[in-house]
Design a protein around this nucleic acid. Sequence first.
RNA 1: CGCGGGGUGGAGCAGCCCGGUAGCUCGCAAGGCUCAUAACCUUGAGGUCGUAGGUUCAAAUCCUGCCCCCGCAACCA
Length: 488
Amino acid sequence: MSKFYVTTPIYYVNDAPHIGHAYTTILADVLARFHRNAGDQVFFLTGLDEHGQKVMQAAQKRGMTPQAHCDDLAPRFTNLWTKLDIRYDDFVRTTEERHKRVVRDVLQRVFDAGDIYLNEYEGLYSVAEERFITQTEFDSGQFRDVKMLKEKNYFFKMSKYQKQLVDYIETHDDFILPIHRRNEILGFLKQPLGDLCISRPKSRMDWGIEIPFDKDYVTYVWFDALINYISIPGYLYDDAKFKQWWPADVHLIGKDILTTHSVYWTTMLFSLGLPQPKTIFAHGWWLIGDSKMSKSLGNVVNPLDLIEQHGIDAVRYYLMREMVLGSDANFTPESFIKCYNSDLANDFGNLLNRVSGLIGKNHGGIIPTLGTLTPAEEDIKARADALPKQVNAAITAFKVQEAVVAAIEFVRVLNKYMEVQAPWKLAKTDMPGAERVLATAASGLRLSATLLLPVMPDKCAQVLDILGSPDGKIKLHPPLFPRIEVET
RNA sequence: CGCGGGGUGGAGCAGCCCGGUAGCUCGCAAGGCUCAUAACCUUGAGGUCGUAGGUUCAAAUCCUGCCCCCGCAACCA
């Protein structure tokens, strides 16, 4: 038995959650559930990033104080997580004192260690990005709201750790995944790394955590936010807890925030003398019908709509089944319906109906016991024995799609087995044979449901309840995944 | 030389890091079954894995060149 500490990014509270937030969080939940089922001690942390300029602006626009704005939006996230069946172990809000005190302490420590210095800087500042940009970046034309700004600020000596970071990445294969992201970062690190501006003068922006050694400044939102990964497990305040959980096993992130995690965060940890997380995993984006999801295009998918129509488990299944971790995936209602009908209705749900129906009709509703195996059952059993290992290996390698596919393929094997053995025929001539087949199918279905439990907690629990145990009585049930009929 | 992603049977994809007879789902055709959510099962048609070279006994997979497609104001996993 080991421990598993998984994090999601803490989401920036300037708007309502969308499918992207939901995806990352569901992914974390699925991994967490797999590890819990494997007997691991699990700590699953998610939460909200509530400081920074954009939050302040969003609040101003609504005529609210930043805190009131955050307090208003926070339940929209937590309520969604409830609806999505997310079982996190802790939920951090960066405006909480238990987080802020650690950020202040970290700033002080890094400062005392000589890794923070004050410097006057004049340069191009992107209001939108909340940071100074280089001339090259400005020339790219990708930044708006750029103005010349001259001010004193505190800088973190990121450059000091560049070599150490490169060495670390090169000697730790699983540190940044997938591999192409690792190469991307190594490529980025071939250029000299600058230092990171980590302060904002209150005169310009005061919605943040005050820097302990200079009350005229608050700290940069990323320097604040990243620390949640250690503040919540008790860094500096609960040694036992911190020792138990840190380093994290995986920081799940979207590919857009790879640099902040693999460069900013890692060098911060070096400065603190803390071990690095085992893995930083950057997944891809959900594209909506081949284009990026964006609010201005109006194609942002609200996960709640889908859930209301088809149930949370189907949505969780689709998201895990469809995206190869690390690549982008395409979200369309059509592909959702295909995936649902094919895997869940026709294969999984239908197999349950076949098995439970036959047991009900021919065997008095009592789930038969196995009896003597024939080669056909030996074959099923061999596959069944191999399956959990296969699924666990896939999960360990962050190949969630593979794990899900392996489980559903086994369901197809069972459907085929049923077809070949035809227990509905055997019932007329060979009752023990019919029982043997149905017992095998029921047991296989229980295994599939057990393996898919992390992905579809509710539906799989229902399957396990319906099929109970050998010798038990099946429960009557409506179709678990009614087919979605598409009107043409 | 801006950055990144991608080009695999009709559609959507996996495989590529760790070379070894090209796989899945959907669709299509024929057949089977009839317990089941018009679901299930079998067989078949259909691909020189963008392209030109290279390495190798062997390349979708590694290397090099080229072509084509997509995304890149803000929001944002």
